[in-house]
Design a protein around this nucleic acid. Sequence first.
DNA 1: AAGCTAGGTGTACGGTGTACGCTTGTCAAT
DNA 2: ATTGACAAGCGTACACCGTACACCTAGCTT
Lengths: 244, 244
Amino acid sequence: MAASGGAAASGGTAQRGQLSREKVLRAAVALADHSGLEAISMRKLAQALGVVPMALYKHVANKDELLAGLVDAVLAEIEPAQEGPDWVANVRRRILSARAVMLRHPWARRVMEAQAAPTPVVLAYMDSTIGMFLAGGLSVDLVHHVMHALGSRIFGFTQELYETDPASASELPPEAAAAMAAAFPGIVAVASSRPHDPDSVVGSGCDDQFEFEFGIDLMLAGVERLHRSGWRSADHDREAASVL
Amino acid sequence: MAASGGAAASGGTAQRGQLSREKVLRAAVALADHSGLEAISMRKLAQALGVVPMALYKHVANKDELLAGLVDAVLAEIEPAQEGPDWVANVRRRILSARAVMLRHPWARRVMEAQAAPTPVVLAYMDSTIGMFLAGGLSVDLVHHVMHALGSRIFGFTQELYETDPASASELPPEAAAAMAAAFPGIVAVASSRPHDPDSVVGSGCDDQFEFEFGIDLMLAGVERLHRSGWRSADHDREAASVL
DNA sequence: AAGCTAGGTGTACGGTGTACGCTTGTCAAT
DNA sequence: ATTGACAAGCGTACACCGTACACCTAGCTT
């Protein structure tokens, strides 16, 4: 009864090669793009594919593995490493490409943060990034520190703990705004400063692209100076005192 | 039957002031410290307190609010802002204090990352940090950029996407290590470089404290240089070309 | 004594990931 | 042509989660 009913009624088993790991991943990316990360549950994803939840498990081991697959899919959109004499420019361009991808898939950041271990694709990306530094002549030790210092910035995102509220600041009732300014004068002053091209900024938010570039340039410039000054794995005091 | 049995058998209702918001939060911190973040569910926390899950909801609005309370509790452990003529030293010390706290509560980073909005306690911490920069004479615009650039580093953590595997690298079978070295030569080279005091490093891990300080010092030194050179809200090219 | 209220209880619902076994279309070898 | 293996989708079931809602009761106020 149940069996024949299922087969006859659903018709879902008509074509066999319906699903595939790639289709599952593509659907998941689309779903996340469209409905946000919280929409990614095995059940909802299955529903979007017109299939029963457990069907997905034939193509992905479990949810974690699915998420890892999403990360890989996103990383594949980043433009490959460039060759060129200017390692700073190479790295900069790559990172900005990564950032563009992350802007297309805003949920990817949180997925990466939640992942326990890097996939081979992630490792390959890191490896090629490291290669760009090494090709620039940086010492292995310096590259080690740089990778730590840049952290997730190499993947094109910083850890925005709280999204810079788009226009919520200007939307609050005036008395709340006044209380805010009284309680946190520094935050209000700094948040309402909008030092760069006002035309590129909509609403009261700040220019995230500028801030991102400011951050990586600060880092890369510091690293370049360390490198030019022949920084070696000396102790940290030397770095702080003379070079910086 | 059920009612009298519950009242008589449990005895939990004997003293009334048993639970309190503070006790709930303290228990939650202890539970997370001891058993990790995934141990924090309303049910398990209630069990740890010898109480039924729903009892918690008299003291905490919901789980998100509980987690926000945890963040506040952790932030309260950070040493308060110092006064002093050297703003770099002030900030540095504060951040390193925050880092020490985060090392005591490793789960706190992930909780903060998952929070949607900052609590007043978080805002107060950020405000006082901003105040340290402003007291140092930095322009409001520069402080704006600096806060973005430092990001979550001001809370004492960087975004360790993948925990630097403690000794897992040396634990893998030799043939896997060889394959790894072949596939990702840069990573292997950089990861196995251990440029600083070998005595302070256990196993094959690297000195996280050094790396953290390296990162913030790189940032702070860059900022200090910008400040000393009279950086104003000019365009980004000027920064890149002349000052850095 | 009567009633209010704060705080702990019990039940129940809808959601999650996923283990396990069944069915069924497809193809290979007999 | 028949059989059998096999891949893939299905259904059920379980344990766990957060939490809405209706209780009950101790202790205080009036």
